[in-house]
Simulated assay, not measured.
Amino acid sequence: MRTVLAASGAALLPLAFAAPAAASGSDDAQVAVFHGVPGLTVDVYANGDVLLEDFEPGTITDPVELPAGSYELEVFPAGADAEAEDPAISATADVPAGANITVAAHLDEGGTPTLTPFVNDVSGLDAGDARLTVRHTAAAPAVDVRAGGDPVIEGLTNPNEETLELPAGSVSADVVLAGTDTVAIGPADLDLAEGVSTIVYAWGSAEDENLALAVQTIDGLESSPSGVPSGTGGLVSDALPWQLALVGVLGAGTVLVLGGRAVRASRD
């Protein structure tokens, strides 16, 4: 895996984040990182300073407040000498003021490590509603998601996402290969809380049979927020089988989406 990362990620990749779904009125942005590259614990640097250490696959950081500006992100195998070795993955990220972003380090459909920024929708929800976002960040083919036997998300491919707003409650869902009735997993019940955005990352590799799930939530969306809501980091969970299948059939997002503790990053 280290060889693959070094070979595929040595080039600098420019990233420009889209405009945030809702602005906070502050110059600071809320930035979370998702680590969706299997089999490699990493250290993450921002503008030459350590942002995350010993960041394990399948984890999402809590949001970190970063001033708007340009950041050079570099990902190294954990413990590597950042001054002597080339980064496994690198990118320049322009972070706009007031954004709520998850940066996902993950595999593309062909299995090559990459970075994808996702702008989190933090717009207000109507009373009684919840938001569900599914992000495909796995080395896996396209899938459909069904609720009650009817497709609600069709042909979802890496590195794309689909968002649904629906009444809060329990949803019976399953995942099938795109355009077929071949069930990958499910049906299973998914509980969606009122005023909460639930972001599901499908990550890993179907070929390597290590598909997994990471979940990020953003609460406080019952009405238009006066600030950018803070998300809560999610961990890999085998207790959400239908989402796990979606990954495999993801690691943002939401949502890099590399996780550990928050460390302030320096700014250009």
Rank of each mutant, 00 (worst) to 15 (best):
T3K: 04
A6L: 15
G9D: 06
L12W: 08
F17R: 00
F17V: 04
F17L: 07
A19H: 01
P20H: 00
S26D: 06
V33W: 09
F34I: 06
H35D: 02
T41A: 13
Y45M: 15
N47S: 11
T59Q: 03
E65D: 04
E65K: 02
L66Y: 01
A68K: 02
G69Q: 05
S70H: 06
Y71I: 10
L73E: 11
V75E: 05
V75S: 00
F76R: 03
I89N: 09
A93H: 07
D94M: 03
D94Y: 05
A99F: 00
A105L: 10
L107E: 02
D108S: 06
E109P: 03
P113D: 03
L115I: 06
T116K: 01
P117K: 04
V122I: 13
S123W: 02
S123I: 07
D126C: 04
G128V: 05
A130M: 08
L132P: 09
V134M: 14
A140E: 09
V145C: 13
R146F: 14
R146V: 15
A147Y: 11
A147Q: 12
A147N: 06
D150G: 02
V152N: 10
I153R: 07
I153Y: 12
E161S: 11
A168C: 12
S170I: 13
S172Y: 10
L177V: 11
A178D: 14
D181K: 02
T182Y: 11
P187G: 09
P187Q: 08
D189E: 15
A193I: 05
E194N: 09
G195A: 13
T198N: 14
I199Q: 12
Y201M: 11
G204P: 08
S205H: 00
L213K: 10
A214T: 13
I218M: 12
I218Q: 11
L221Y: 12
S223I: 13
S223H: 07
P225S: 06
G227D: 08
V228E: 00
V228C: 02
G231L: 09
L244A: 15
A245Q: 12
V247T: 12
L250A: 12
G253T: 08
L256I: 07
L258K: 06
R267D: 06
D268Q: 09
